[in-house]
Design a binder for these strands. Structure first.
Lengths: 208, 208
DNA sequence: TTTTATTAATTAAACGTTTGATTGATTTAA
DNA sequence: TTAAATCAATCAAACGTTTAATTAATAAAA
């Protein structure tokens, strides 16, 4: 993977996020990336394989962070939850475009291979979060909760902020083209909200 | 709007949800609906206007439900939250396909008109929910929470269940093609989870 | 070191197919 | 009879991909 490969992937990422996979032509990508049309087939084989390369490229670089978090014996269950939230919010808001592709276009992707790739990544993430919550329950710090949907709530809340960006820009009086301003305002807001909510949701002292 | 119009919209809805707006051709729609290709232009003007018609068609029939809920003076704030959750979960899970289109394809829709349409609907929904929570706070029943993101959590959790259906089918051992089985299992699960979580999140007795 | 052979990278042009939309003829219903 | 509905046929444009030719880079031979 040379720098040129990566440059094409980054351009494709932006276009896919803005216009969708089917809404983006390989000519769009080639044009914006400043490379010849044929280079995309030459480099990646096809448009579909370019997408697979993009997923591979982006999902690779955060791999391992969750493993580390889970291994850390010095952290309390509450600490782990807080760090988890920080991690996810940062990760997703700072990879806004890629996350848009992952969530928005997943159900429309026709390729079984790509769909399985994405589901696998999500399933692996789920297992890590589940481990943290289960440990907290074993330690009698967390109460019994719906495991799948508690994870779904964390993911879904963050996803909502990216997928309904237009709405939140309007509600918070942010210029909808000011990506940086949106991130700056939304990241701490998201972290605070999720921590406050999970604190109430998971606390064993809050009875059913 | 005749029955034939509606039939085409329903077919288009399913295809848009499965393959995306750009991934669906008007020939796909005409073929599956059993009408002549030219009828789509004849009826709706264009593919884009068909999409606008679909949004108008689907978003119309739930309008007014939230207004009613807010007007009901006999309900406590907790009751209203519970009813709100029931309403949203039923509405979205039973209009799974349309909701997929609304959330997944919104950011990729090029037409400003359609984007504004969707954002307007969401903003209106937000105001209704905000009203319920604000009222509960005024009555000293709910604590202070992040208004925008609390609504975002409810919406996001439900959206997550529809957009990551593949993942949840795997986690819950449901055949991923069994739409009905998924709904049957997920609707009560979602309602219980959201109620439990919001109960903890909003309760004024759960201090920061 | 220079020349030659081989591979890799890049290009413009063209491929066949599909796209959204429209036409003008034909059928149906009022 | 007249207007609306439906049809097959057609359009130009855009699509993803491939081609054949050319340039740049590398390796082998002199």
């Amino acid at each position: 993977m040379t720098g040129k490969h990566i440059h094409i992937l980054e351009v494709a990422e932006q276009l896919f996020a803005e216009k969708g996979f089917d809404g983006t032509s390989v000519r769009d990508i080639a044009g914006k990336a400043g490379v010849n049309l044929a280079m995309i087939s030459y480099y990646f084989g096809s448009k579909e394989k370019l997408m697979a390369s993009l997923i591979d490229f982006r999902s690779g670089y955060t791999r391992g962070i969750l493993e580390e978090l889970n291994k850390d014996e010095s952290l309390s269950s509450w600490d782990k939850v807080e760090r988890l939230i920080d991690l996810y919010v940062d990760k997703i808001l700072n990879n806004y475009k890629f996350h848009c592709i992952m969530t928005q276009h997943l159900p429309t992707v026709q390729s079984d291979e790509i769909r399985e790739m994405i589901t696998d990544i999500k399933a692996k993430n789920f297992e890590h979060v589940k481990k943290i919550i289960t440990e907290g329950q074993r330690k009698k710090v967390f109460r019994k909760v719906d495991m799948e949907l508690t994870v779904g709530t964390v993911m879904g809340t963050i996803a909502q902020v990216t997928s309904s960006k237009n709405l939140y820009c309007r509600l918070l009086n942010i210029n909808k083209d000011d990506e940086e301003g949106y991130r700056k305002k939304m990241i701490p807001k998201l972290k605070t909200h999720l921590k406050q909510m999970l604190k109430a949701h998971l606390d064993i002292n809050n009875q059913e």
